[in-house]
Design a protein around this nucleic acid. Sequence first.
DNA 1: TATTGTTATACTCTATAACTATA
DNA 2: TATAGTTATAGAGTATAACAATA
Lengths: 153, 153
Amino acid sequence: MPLENPPGSAFLLAAVGAHAAARFAERVAALDLTPPQVGLLGLIAASPGQSQQQVAQVLGMPPSRLVGLVDALADRGLVERRRNPDDRRLHALHITEAGRAVLDEIGAVGRAHDDALCRSLDADERETLRALLSRIAADQGLRPGVHPGYRSV
Amino acid sequence: MPLENPPGSAFLLAAVGAHAAARFAERVAALDLTPPQVGLLGLIAASPGQSQQQVAQVLGMPPSRLVGLVDALADRGLVERRRNPDDRRLHALHITEAGRAVLDEIGAVGRAHDDALCRSLDADERETLRALLSRIAADQGLRPGVHPGYRSV
DNA sequence: TATTGTTATACTCTATAACTATA
DNA sequence: TATAGTTATAGAGTATAACAATA
């Protein structure tokens, strides 16, 4: 129940955000992917060649957790680990051609998801919503494009 | 990373919503409560006398999960189970005076949380945001005041 | 000795299903 | 037999810490 009546923006944000995340998870499940895997794939595509430590740092998760995520994507040939010859401890992460193709599919899924979620808003209203949310995100210190839900406490 | 550039409303909503939920969880943790407990307490206050089955139905969780949540609140004297004399299988849930007092504290915490989250928006903008989010929530079939994140798949 | 990536372990949360008491 | 509530069990997800390879 709303603790305030009417419910405050924060409650609405959390509720609608959780709904949006759940619906998105359903959609990418059809591609046999989880949201954290999607976030990781997108990050590797945007910043190729980084080490697992660096990626874990950006995503705000322990490096040990990254191992399984990278394994899942690598097993399917969507990303690859390349050993750095200068320092053979480092594994640079790169997206593959197959990974890029899947990323395109994810993009289509994301747009469909966006449309379904905001279908009750016209174009101007969607832009207003995006602008307000972007302002909050920046003010609250959220890194653009990084979902804080994958971050540890 | 945003799969679209700029990120769509849905991604922003999920990200800011997760952030809002995490910050709220931190705040109520200071009252020794978890967000599901807060949601349950608020629901019992708003609709007293319902059975656990009914409450579980509204919250979208299995009745077995409700047991632990009610136990935690009942052990602290915030709610109580009252057996129905006509059908002794049913436990009607009621909030206590102590529960009401805690609910007041939660309300204050929620307002502070709301202010902190939306501090980059002026009053008009906050109202605009609330209106747009309310529209999406209604269109997407979210029950007012019920956080879908506690719902099972 | 320090660091990268990995594996092992343990813990939290939750759903499913068995169980009890009432009807 | 059916239903409300409870307890038991099991599974998913994740953090912490130990470990092996490399520096």
